[in-house]
Structures are given as C-alpha cells and as structure tokens.
C-alpha cells in the first residue's frame, strides 16, 4: 500500500477564545489515498469546510497532525508551503471567486502567473485547458459575462491548469441547476478516472456523494461514518486494507 496523499490524525480546530471559543473539529482522523474520490458530507455547520481547508493546508490545526505524502505538513513554511498550494493542489469553490473584469483566460492562468511561468507558456497551457473544457471560444470574454455553469467550468479549468495532484472542491455544484451540475460532476469524475487526479469533494448533494469511491460524514466536528461505495471499493482500497475507516470518536 502506497502512502496516502494526505493523512490527518487527532485533528482539532477551535475558533475564538474564552467564552466564545468554539471547537469546529473535535478529533478527526482521515486518510486520502492517491487517485480516489472522497466525499465529505454532513449537515451545515458540522465542520466540512473547516476539515477541507486543513487538508488543503490553507489552515493550521489547533492540535493534531497533517501529513502530505507521508511528510508532516507543519514542517512546510513560507515558500515551500506556497509551492504545494500552487502546484500540488487545485481548488474549486462554491462561490466562483473569479475576477469579474478580467478575461476568462486571465482568470484561468492566475495560478501559472503566481508560479512565475512565462507569458507564452501561460497562454499555451491556459488555452489547452480551456479547449479541454470546451471553453476555448470564451477565452477572451470577461468572466462576468458567462453563465453559472460556464463560470464553474472556468473555475475547474483554473484548478486544473497547474496539473495538480489533488483537487479540492467545496460544493462544486451547489450553485448550479441539476443538468449543469451533472455536467460539472461528469467533468470532475472524468479527470479523476482518466488523469488519476485525487478528488476531495465537500457536498450536501446525496447524488454527488454516491458517485464518489468513498464518503465520510461529519457531525458536530467528528467523523460519524465512513462508507465505501460498493462499485468503487476495489479500485480505491488495496486488497487486505479495509480502507482504514476513520471511525468517529465516541462522544
């Protein structure tokens, strides 16, 4: 069994101080394996986004450990951390976070620009990704002029442009109608299958969660249940490894 891409153990995350202190995560263990698709589900306010941000190294836990490819993530500082965020991860947020006045292409190549990739190379890779998502003809349009589904595809293009190892998606279809949502899902799972990109999806959507290889349910800051989708179980977990179900800690 290869080392998991991400592994968190005994993860706590508290917000605030004193009487207003609130523990959003109360001891969470999760493993994300290379190439799998993992759904994080749970009620609103249960701590799904908090968990995803910790997995994506955007936030630091109050206590507990986060390992990236077997190495402790709290060793990463400054430049290295930024490199990981930039090259290893891709993000798809519920709100699109596109710069409205900039063109579609400019939005898509933002991670490349941050990475310091040259102008020509940026354009080439940006256009290639847009081509792939069927948005090449919109490259020069302002981001604000696109429909919701198109915007979400631009966001996916932006997440993909750096060829990441893991894509984190926080409610990627929450803003879309059923048909468009399904198209975006197909796109994400296609990338997962064909390019082996690991998917971590936070969702309320039962249908989307059921398409993932595995799901974990968060309730009040703890993992309640971990289930492996029957069809995907074989590919997701190596034989003899029960997928290290991250059981909820007893309350």
């Amino acid at each position: 069994m290869s080392t998991p891409v991400l592994r968190v153990e005994g993860l706590h995350r508290a917000y605030g101080r004193g009487p207003t202190r609130f523990e959003a995560l109360k001891g969470v263990d999760v493993e994300v394996r290379a190439g799998e698709s993992l759904a994080i589900v749970g009620k609103s306010g249960s701590g799904k986004s908090t968990l995803m941000h910790l997995l994506a190294l955007l936030d630091r836990p109050t206590s507990g450990s986060v390992e990236l490819n077997g190495l402790p993530a709290d060793r990463l500082r400054g430049r290295e951390l930024n490199r990981v965020r930039n090259q290893t991860f891709g993000f798809v947020f519920q709100q699109f976070f596109l710069t409205p006045s900039a063109t579609v292409l400019e939005n898509v190549i933002l991670p490349l620009k941050i990475a310091g990739v040259g102008r020509g190379e940026r354009k080439r890779r940006g256009m290639a990704v847009l081509e792939q998502l069927g948005l090449a003809d919109k490259a020069k349009n302002k981001a604000i002029d696109l429909s919701g589904g198109q915007k979400q595809r631009v966001v996916i293009a932006r997440a993909l442009v750096n060829d990441p190892q893991v894509i984190f998606a926080d409610e990627p279809t929450g803003n879309l109608d059923t048909t468009t949502g399904a198209a975006v899902e197909d796109l994400l799972f296609g990338l997962n299958r064909e390019r082996g990109i690991t998917l971590v999806v936070v969702t309320h959507d039962e249908e989307l969660a059921s398409r993932c290889d595995r799901r974990i349910t968060v309730r009040d800051g703890r993992i309640e249940a971990s289930a492996t989708a029957p069809t995907a179980a074989a590919t997701a977990a190596a034989p003899g490894e029960p997928g290290r179900p991250t059981e909820g800690v007893a309350a």
Binding site: A56, L58, G78, R79, L81, N82, R83, V84, R85, N86, Q87, F91, Q95, F97, T99, L110, P111, I114, A115
Partner: peptide, 16 residues
C-alpha cells in the same frame, strides 16, 4: 479581500 484570499490559497506569498 476574496481575490487576495484566492491568490494566497493558490500559493502567492505575502511578500508578493
């Protein structure tokens, strides 16, 4: 604010 957050999430350093 959100754009800055996004750029930082995408690995842009504070110095930049």
């Amino acid at each position: 604010t959100r754009e800055i957050g996004l750029m930082k999430a995408m690995g842009m350093g504070s110095g930049r």
